[in-house]
Simulated assay, not measured.
Amino acid sequence: MKVAQLGSGTPEIAVVAGVHGDEPCGVRAVERLLDERPAVKRPVKLIVANEKALERQVRFVDEDLNRAFPGDPDAKTHEAELASELVNELDDCLAFSMHSTQSHAEPFAIVNEITERATELCPQLPVAAMVETSMFAEGRLFSAAQTIEVECGLQGTETAAENADRLTRAFLTAVGALPGDTVQRDLPVFRLTDVIQKEQADTYEVFVDNFTKVPAGDPFAAADGETQIADEAFYPILMSSNGYEDVFGYTAEKLDILTTQPIAD
């Protein structure tokens, strides 16, 4: 794990990249900050987490780091030990953790709970939605540290790396670490409700778009040509034919739209 810092003092803000070794977009954003060394108004801790997996260009070495928290300093797996080290580094910090996905090109934010801090910060980020994932947070960084997670775009793309840089700077501006102003935007809010299981098959198809409502009775996916039909309406999140080994993605409900406050005349 690589740990660096911008500014002097004890950081209360941390930027985390490289939780998964096959998602290098956030690492690019951290490296650019380290190259530029911008003047900050409050100290920021910069972390590249799973260096071993990044070097091997694999998601993880022994187990998924984002399912291994809070970890164990005496663990026998690389990721469980690393999880414990990362939790210690993030003590008393708000973490901004960057990921990428095979399911959706447009960035979106993921939070464990819809807190006042989340509703304040996420509309200031260049994201299309905020997703609450409390029912599925076990073992994730959320469960061990205050975290706002972002999916920066499609895994391995230059666009995801550019988005990661833009998202990081917007976050650091929103928390007062970088000077300047952010752009407030209306933001739809979703909550994950269930996992869409994927049976073992040779071919998989997905017929729906993420964040677009699927009416009850509509087909949404197929495994080896066997179509799955929606029993009730839902919004698909992280839905793809090849993103996860055993699930297509998640069902979600739409909770709200966070709206920007109009400026008084």
Score class of each variant (00 low, 15 high):
residue 233 A to D: 07
residue 134 S to N: 15
residue 79 E to C: 04
residue 75 A to L: 00
residue 28 R to D: 14
residue 100 S to L: 08
residue 78 H to C: 11
residue 211 F to V: 01
residue 161 A to C: 11
residue 25 C to I: 13
residue 198 K to E: 03
residue 239 M to I: 05
residue 212 T to D: 09
residue 112 N to M: 15
residue 191 R to P: 08
residue 26 G to K: 06
residue 32 R to H: 11
residue 160 A to W: 12
residue 232 E to C: 04
residue 157 T to W: 10
residue 132 E to C: 11
residue 203 T to V: 14
residue 40 V to N: 01
residue 7 G to F: 02
residue 58 V to M: 06
residue 81 E to G: 12
residue 94 L to I: 05
residue 78 H to S: 13
residue 248 F to M: 00
residue 136 F to Y: 11
residue 141 L to R: 00
residue 32 R to D: 13
residue 112 N to C: 12
residue 135 M to S: 13
residue 140 R to A: 14
residue 61 V to D: 09
residue 23 E to T: 02
residue 261 Q to H: 09
residue 258 L to Y: 01
residue 225 G to D: 08
residue 242 N to A: 11
residue 226 E to H: 12
residue 139 G to R: 04
residue 237 I to A: 01
residue 53 A to Q: 08
residue 80 A to C: 04
residue 215 P to C: 01
residue 178 L to C: 11
residue 58 V to K: 10
residue 95 A to T: 15
residue 187 L to T: 07
residue 63 E to G: 06
residue 185 R to Y: 04
residue 16 V to W: 01
residue 178 L to T: 12
residue 140 R to D: 10
residue 123 P to K: 08
residue 100 S to H: 10
residue 154 L to I: 15
residue 221 A to V: 09
residue 103 S to W: 00
residue 24 P to N: 09
residue 96 F to G: 09
residue 180 G to W: 03
residue 146 Q to I: 01
residue 11 P to F: 05
residue 172 L to A: 12
residue 166 R to V: 13
residue 15 V to Q: 02
residue 3 V to A: 10
residue 195 V to R: 09
residue 216 A to E: 05
residue 176 G to K: 03
residue 166 R to M: 13
residue 22 D to F: 10
residue 87 V to H: 07
residue 15 V to N: 03
residue 44 V to Y: 02
residue 173 T to W: 01
residue 36 E to M: 13
residue 43 P to K: 02
residue 223 A to P: 09
residue 95 A to D: 13
residue 145 A to L: 01
residue 198 K to W: 02
residue 85 E to D: 12
residue 165 D to T: 15
residue 185 R to S: 15
residue 186 D to L: 09
residue 4 A to C: 04
